[in-house]
Design a protein around this nucleic acid. Structure first.
Lengths: 231, 231
DNA sequence: AAGTGGTCTAGACCACGTC
DNA sequence: ACGTGGTCTAGACCACTTT
């Protein structure tokens, strides 16, 4: 006798419902996939797909041999899309432009040097300003590891932003990102056309290709702007 | 003749490699799943799993009938985990505590009223301070829609934080989140024990259960703190 | 050693979107 | 109407963890 062709979404919704109604409270051990499949009238793979989805959202914890449990602390995992600034601005219907403020090859300061895994080598230092509808939007301060990214010294960052160039020329396998707030220093404030000391949102990213550091960048948003996402 | 048992990860890596080497440039149309499966020597489902993974990361665009294309603008999708503040602090080895500063039932100001989809109804207003190792860490200013969340008026937010209570009592299906930077106002600055006007990172979230608004909250981080994630 | 999730295969049918 | 991705099933084997 064939089973009843449940969809994996319907299995996921049923499991989520049982968690929300308290039938399976925080920390509870769920039946194993095979038993759930029999109960829900579907193939085990379908249950697997549903539970995997909930685990990716942070709602379940799964371990081989131990089984599947309701997460103790439901830290929702949110998908956050890192936008290309040009696309983000154009999506708002505003004209995008960008200006190269500085291009230099020199030894980076110690914290950057450590992040880029460089010894005494020089790195490529780029500062640029992204504009939205003619107004300063984001000040970008970037260091690039030239040993990881070949040909980066030949790139012309006055016509294409470093971000866009790297996206299509430098593979990356992992990264770190942080948000913070600072009072703008002299350089950033001048670029953005605001007073020194103004509060601004900072987004820092560091990326690697395998174990080789690619770039670290700090984006300073003009006052009044924010970074948004939905989940 | 059985196929060669490729893993979906190896298929994903091979596809990613072909994109990075420029074999499949931005916007290019990939062969259909069936053809790729034959070429890579595996089942179509395995190719499907690999391509789905790359699509979730924002590297591919997939449409039925149209096929699979390399994304024009590779906006990496990053997974961001919304932490429970208590867990985040305890993970750093510091003592967590929290203080309820204000609990009030009153009509919210217009922007909050609109966000919570309320007419002239009152809402629950909670202000609290989260401490890390005895020092102010985050000032939380939250409004809760009492029509969406039954029994919320009975909750004792002096012993459990509103965040943790909601996590286990109020289902949510979608949300929005934003990061910004502000100069702290009088209330937040006093709670955090810093000067009015200090720059601080703000994380705002709004959540819904289906089409019913649940809560909106603003978290003000004490100066020097940041929100981090890796991808 | 044994239990549980992770994945693969082959074949089938469905659903969506374009023509 | 047709082409492509989306998903389901049944069965098998593998891989990680804990006992």
């Amino acid at each position: 006798m064939p089973r009843e062709n449940q969809t994996w979404q319907s299995v996921r919704d049923e499991v989520r419902k049982r968690i929300q109604t308290g039938l399976w409270p925080m920390g509870a051990l769920l039946p194993k996939e095979e038993d759930l499949a029999i109960e829900m009238g579907c193939a085990r793979v379908t249950v697997n797909r549903a539970l995997r989805d909930l685990a990716e959202q942070g709602i379940l914890d799964r371990k081989r041999k131990s089984g599947t449990r309701v997460a103790e602390f439901p830290s929702r995992n949110v998908k956050f899309s890192i936008p290309v600034l040009r696309k983000e601005i154009e999506a708002l219907g505003r004209a995008y432009s960008h200006t190269l403020l500085l291009r230099d090859v020199c030894p980076p300061p110690p914290p950057i040097r450590a992040a880029l895994q460089l010894d005494d080598t020089a790195a490529l230092h780029i500062q640029s300003l992204h504009m939205s509808g003619g107004h300063p939007f984001v000040f970008e301060d970037r260091w690039i590891n030239p040993t990881t990214v070949p040909h980066v010294m030949d790139a012309d960052f006055s016509s294409i932003s470093a971000n866009e160039w790297l996206v299509s020329h430098a593979p990356l396998t992992r990264g770190e990102m942080s948000f913070s707030a600072v009072s703008l220093d002299h350089v950033a404030a001048e670029a953005l056309g605001v007073q020194v000391g103004t509060s601004a949102l900072i987004n820092e990213r560091r990326t690697w290709d395998g174990d080789r550091a690619v770039t670290c960048v700090s984006l300073s948003y003009a006052p009044g702007h924010s970074v948004r996402t939905s989940f």
